[in-house]
């Protein structure tokens, strides 16, 4: 049994704006019978003001797919195309109170269908099937999910794990073969986010408090170093920080590896120096 909010149940049992608008100004579609959920949106747009005057949906899917579509039509109605294009899947989920984690992809589908409907209007009303850009490479072959879609889900919803990504995009939810590739995309994104945050603060490492320093080091260990070591069956933990000397302990496969000293100096040490402070020194506990 799913823990659906009253709002989800209400929109499921009494869906608003069901159907199709005849001679619609825009038609957007997403999903397929194979995937187990699909959504079609039609919109009527005021040509002068670009306000969505009417919007109707048809959905094949579970209760949360129907509720997401229904609430989306309420949210988009009366908005200008520009305002409507800013609706994210998180907005849809919030409007419903919440959605179970494993059902978040239903809200993503709503966002994608709206995007397609707006594109359809801009292109003169010819129906548009939401499609991931041709150039973007397919990561999950079971559900045909591209890197682009995964990246967007990570950024919009601040996803941190492969499991999160499966809940939001379905990628990795069937055979699971692509989970490694999803982890790599995630690693890349998380690695990019950190330096940005550092620049915002503009505080050099040496000026941080001891607690901030430890946090910064742990961040790098978790996002940059551990994922690499994990691939060889190893891991790492922070033991101590004394001045510029970072004491760490290699775990798992790394602990017994004859190349562990090389790993420490060349990989762990260099990564910390590059990301935080070139004076840092790494020692084995």
């Amino acid at each position: 049994m799913w823990d659906y909010t009253d709002k989800v149940l209400d929109h499921f049992k009494n869906p608003r704006n069901v159907g199709t608008i005849e001679n619609a100004d825009g038609t957007g579609q997403v999903g397929s019978l194979i995937c187990g959920d699909a959504l079609k949106l039609t919109i009527k747009v005021n040509k002068e003001t670009e306000v969505i005057e009417d919007i109707k949906f048809q959905t094949f899917g579970c209760a949360s797919a129907i509720a997401s579509s229904s609430v989306l039509t309420e949210m988009a109605k009366g908005k200008t195309l520009e305002e409507a294009s800013k609706i994210t899947n998180q907005d849809i989920a919030n409007a419903l109170g919440s959605l179970p984690e494993a059902k978040m992809h239903c809200s993503v589908m709503g966002m994608e269908a709206l995007e397609a409907a707006i594109k359809s209007y801009r292109q003169g009303g010819k129906p548009v099937v939401f499609e991931q850009t041709q150039e973007s490479k397919i990561v999950c072959e079971c559900f045909n999910i591209t890197e682009e879609v995964i990246l967007k889900a990570i950024h919009t919803n601040h996803l941190k794990t492969v499991e999160d990504i499966t809940h939001f995009t379905k990628a990795g939810g069937a055979c699971g073969k692509c989970k490694g590739a999803i982890q790599q995309i995630l690693d890349k994104v998380l690695a990019c986010e950190l330096p940005q945050k550092k620049q915002e603060g503009k505080k050099p490492f040496s000026a941080l408090t001891i607690v901030e320093k430890i946090k910064a080091i742990e961040n790098i260990l978790n996002t940059e170093i551990k994922p690499q070591l994990n691939k060889d069956g190893g891991s790492i933990e922070l033991v101590d920080l004394n001045g510029n000397v970072v004491t760490v302990r290699l775990l798992g496969g790394c602990a017994s590896c004859i190349a562990s000293q090389m790993t420490l100096k060349n990989f762990v040490g260099k990564t910390l120096q590059d990301k935080l402070d070139k004076n840092l020194e790494v020692k084995q506990a």
């Binding site: 187990g36 959920d37 899917g61 579970c62 797919a65 179970p100 494993a102 059902k103 559900f143 499966t166 379905k170 939810g173 069937a174």
Partner: peptide
């Protein structure tokens, strides 16, 4: 036997 009843994504 629908995928959505289990959360497994596969029917």
């Amino acid at each position: 036997g629908s995928a959505c009843t289990t959360g497994s994504l596969e029917p």
